[in-house]
Design a protein around this nucleic acid. Structure first.
Lengths: 196, 196, 196, 196
DNA sequence: CATGAATGAGACTTCATTCAT
DNA sequence: CATGAATGAAGTCTCATTCAT
């Protein structure tokens, strides 16, 4: 029983990993179920034992990828940290994560065509939750007088947007600047920009 | 004869407009040629009189959209302008353009799966050209001592990324801030962040 | 009126000639109406002023080609000629015709997929008529004691078959033997084969 | 496992047989893949598991048909046989084959529009090989003094052409002459025609 | 549980034919 | 009469999904 359960669990994982690999390389529509099966080292029919359809598999993969990403780069909750420290950690963990999980990152930052309403909502909420958290932190800093009075939402977008545009050069590896440096400079610019 | 020439011209345009509309809403693979034809108010076969294939139509649409966008938001060439003035114009024209051409904007900021190598290169070069121009302007400002010494490429990414993340709330219309205000605040943050 | 009639007549002929050229080169299904129009130097729609459909055009072309061929190689009616003389004339006129009308010949000897029942019947009758005439001539020769008693129909097939297999090397031009020689040798073999 | 292998083999064969049947009746272009599938008693898509395309299926069918035909009517290799005996065997085996494999024969003697260069070459070589063999045998007979000096290639064409024109009445069944008789008479005519 | 041969819905594309000019 | 832009029926082929083994 335990074994069986474990094996099932791990086969689901194997399929999801294969899915990340293939989907992220070729996109949803150019990916054939057979190829995922091949990469996973199993038979085509077996995927359907664990996922109802191609769409469901894609969305499960999307969900798990986003979860992994957002878990990893979650902003530190410690109240004692300043905004500057938090931004620095955010940038650095984002950059490191991208470097270490290229396939996965590509998916997270894809603006894919494949969204059914449920996944759209789920993702939207997940994203929103994070954004709102960031907006909240910024708002707090303003109220605490740590930074000057800017539109918190606008600043959130500026930060999120910067993260998004970073992954291209990061994943392409054609950059001579270290993650720590990148994070430091970005933090510096933004903090100077908003400090009183 | 003149009429005929004009009609042909406009029919190509009609098809491209329909393509922008449908492709941008549903994505490449979920779009059926028949639907584009229906939206264009013509027969399915007629599209093939003007474009060789679905892919070619998509790429023609992509090309024209990017051209329109980049033409519109090109940075002012006037040497007399300061970086601050230029950034302000950039942000404002971007925001205005997004508001007025929602479908088209969605396409410009798509990271679509559908690129053949030629279009990829073409787009990459177009994008790069603009980015390099911005990078150059920043580098100039640094050398002229207008701003402090930051990594010009990194700053370019920060600006481009901000533009990219803006279009979501802009096109969703759920924002109570005016384009001019938005542009002013963003310019302000960035300029404060990089000024000596 | 006369002019108009004449022009119509000649345009029909122009189209038929173009049809022979294109159909014989590319076959029925690989031929586009547009190409025939181009070769004929007229507009696509104009063909339909003279022929109801592609099939009808093909069949008209077939009919005229067969007519031309059969008219040209009809066996001489002179009662005074011997079978040997007639065969010789048959072979020689066939070979000459093939040399001079390659496109047309290709059509005549094609075993095309395109036969509707009417054309099939028409062709079958035309062919049959000629074959029966030949069979009759042979039968006469037998009865007149000119040749020995062979199955006239079988001999007809042998002769017709020989004609058919000749056109390949004839039209390919890769033969060092003159038409007259070819005709003479074939006649010789056959006549020796059936003479008493 | 053994069964599975066997089934696959036979399904390819089933499709080929259906293809012979339908293609030979309707020609290449008038044949729909669906019809072949229906005749084979399988689904449309299954054909594509065994053949890449309609063209490939056609050519595979052509190849196999020609192979079967040429294998069957190959001229006896025994050196002891005279030309007369060989011709007799050739005609008789041809006639018998035609009677027993009407569909297949129709294909072998088709002068179809559907040839890509590879198949054209393959077929041309196969045909040529057989023709040259026949031409060689004739040439030998001439040199051995068995028959008189005729153009060996011309005689080959005469024989091949006769074979070709025979299949029409043979497959139409409207003939009161036995295969053996037919073969005997043809051999007789030709041998008399070329004997010293 | 696992498999992969079989399936058929559905999409792109071609091209004969029409008809407004 | 002549034209060629427009049309849509029809055909090939793909690939997610099923199901018998």
């Amino acid at each position: 029983m335990k074994d069986s359960g474990k094996r099932v669990q791990s086969k689901r994982k194997i399929i999801l990993d294969a899915a990340v690999q293939v989907f992220s390389t070729k996109g949803y529509h150019n990916t054939r179920m057979e190829e995922i099966a091949t990469v996973a080292g199993i038979g085509k029919g077996t995927i359907y034992e664990y996922f109802d359809s191609k769409l469901q598999l894609f969305q499960a993969m999307m969900e798990s990828s986003l979860q992994i990403y957002y878990n990893r780069i979650d902003m530190p909750k410690l109240e004692t940290l300043t905004l500057e420290e938090r931004l620095s950690v955010l940038f650095e963990s984002h950059i490191t994560f991208c470097r270490e999980n290229k396939d996965l990152t590509r998916i997270v930052f894809w603006d894919t065509e494949i969204w059914d309403e449920d996944l759209k909502d789920w993702t939207y909420n997940l994203r929103n939750e994070k954004e709102e958290k960031l907006t909240g932190i910024i708002q707090d800093s303003i109220e605490r007088g740590e930074i000057r009075n800017v539109d918190a939402k606008l600043l959130t977008l500026l930060i999120i947007g910067s993260l998004g545009s970073l992954w291209v050069p990061i994943t392409l590896d054609d950059w001579d600047i270290s993650p720590a440096d990148m994070a430091a400079q970005l933090t510096d610019i933004i903090m100077k920009g908003i400090r009183k």
